[in-house]
Design a protein around this nucleic acid. Structure first.
Lengths: 243, 243
DNA sequence: CCAAAAGTGTTACCTTTACACCCATGT
DNA sequence: ACATGGGTGTAAAGGTAACACTTTTGG
């Protein structure tokens, strides 16, 4: 690990061109990426956690995350790490926030960049691999103690999620390929912790043209089956939808 | 600088606990912070740039930014660097985005975290210091070539600024201590590149309770002087204001 | 027929928009 | 008096919220 002496002579270099500590001492940090993958199932929003099989924080639950290679783009690192630990590939993730507390990693100075995304749990069957011992979708209502400052990272990701759900299309990512309008409404109510009027919610979501009606309805329900919809092809991440 | 060999044996470590390259090789990156400080003057939004007096990109214009010490919090680094290069102290800055392209810094692997803030140019008299040779408020309309990927960082900061201006209070930071409603409107029109109806804009901004009227009016104007306002004490960064 | 949830129409209310008009001041 | 920009009122248009209602299914 980094020579401890680096830490003992931080001085203000601002009075000269160049630096008062050797340039190489600045190049002693590591970067990591942490992925907050939200899923939706049983009318509940869940977060994908792994059980760490490696030190530090061995056996603790944590967000899937790992060190970035020195010659790897941040985005590539996020993709690689997620795939390596959970098997999930090619998932678009959005950068959320960077965490740079000095003491946040016991091994040395590690700054982490968090990414988040939303998936429908039915569509992904993640499987623990590499040093991830276990993997589980945890309800946001019961989050265990997490490694490092992952609780802060998770909270910050939830915040980004809520903020973006109001203005962007990302919410639909959580739903299965075919879904009812009620599913959409329940999802929004759950994430935003807010009730919507059924008639008005439908009008708004249908008016947005993001949904394409299918010639299909629910089956095996003891009441009038609801029409099924899919996400319209034209809808992309830049489309806006205000609830 | 970092031993080149680190870069030549990046391998996928996902098949074993631990890593296929020595742990210390991960700790070979540097972090930097870059500050996008927006100012407002003469009905124009400007960005504070420094002329670099040190390699690399010596003599190029750049956002004020520098390497973070290995034992320094990110936020502390942002404050220190801004003060060191421009003299501006205790300015609240918001984290915007992190940039981690492999080739973005010629010296080695440097990931940068950008921060931004808004100030009223009248209130700050920044002065180039440390390795900043010169310092200048540049109109956003005429940005010179910038060092590193600072153009991308600037664009991303402008984007964050616009996004937040619509829902948060930050816009008022750009204004002097006393200002007219017209000043507010011009600022919003300028940043959002959009015209607002005078009567309606006034109603909205006054209804928000963010402004406190002063017993004072403009002077030396060849027409009816406008009433002056100041930002109300109760208004904080969490207050919302929708234009 | 009933229960349950899907799905729709109507109205009252509120906000936004557009625009006209009056007001205060320096010259 | 008049030109200039400050400041205000109002009515039309549009969107939102609330709620009652009809429809379709399984039992």
């Amino acid at each position: 690990m980094t020579d401890k002496s680096i830490f003992d002579d931080d001085k203000d270099p601002s009075d000269s061109y160049g630096y008062s500590i050797p340039l190489k001492d600045f190049f002693s940090c590591a970067l990591s990426v942490d992925c907050a993958i939200f899923g939706y199932e049983d009318n509940d929003v869940k977060i994908l956690l792994i059980k760490r099989g490696a030190e530090p924080f061995k056996n603790s639950w944590a967000l899937p995350g790992d060190l970035m290679y020195p010659r790897e783009n941040l985005e590539d690192a996020a993709q690689r790490v997620l795939k390596s630990l959970t098997g999930i590939e090619n998932l678009f993730m959005e950068q959320a926030h960077s965490f740079g507390g000095v003491q946040r990693h016991p091994t040395g100075r590690v700054i982490t960049v968090s990414y988040y995304s939303l998936v429908n749990i039915q569509d992904y069957k993640p499987k623990a691999s590499s040093w991830a011992k276990k993997l589980k979708w945890h309800s946001l209502k019961e989050i265990p103690d997490l490694a490092f400052d992952h609780r802060d990272i998770l909270d910050s990701s939830v915040h980004s999620l809520r903020k973006n759900l109001r203005t962007r299309l990302i919410g639909f990512n959580l739903l299965p390929g075919k879904f009812t309008l009620k599913d959409v409404q329940q999802l929004y109510e759950l994430i935003l912790d807010q009730k919507f009027d059924k008639a008005n919610f439908r009008k708004k979501v249908l008016a947005s043209d993001f949904l394409e009606p299918l010639d299909e309805v629910e089956s095996n329900v003891p009441y009038r089956p609801a029409k099924l919809y899919k996400l319209a092809d034209i809808a992309d991440n830049s489309s806006s939808f205000e609830v």
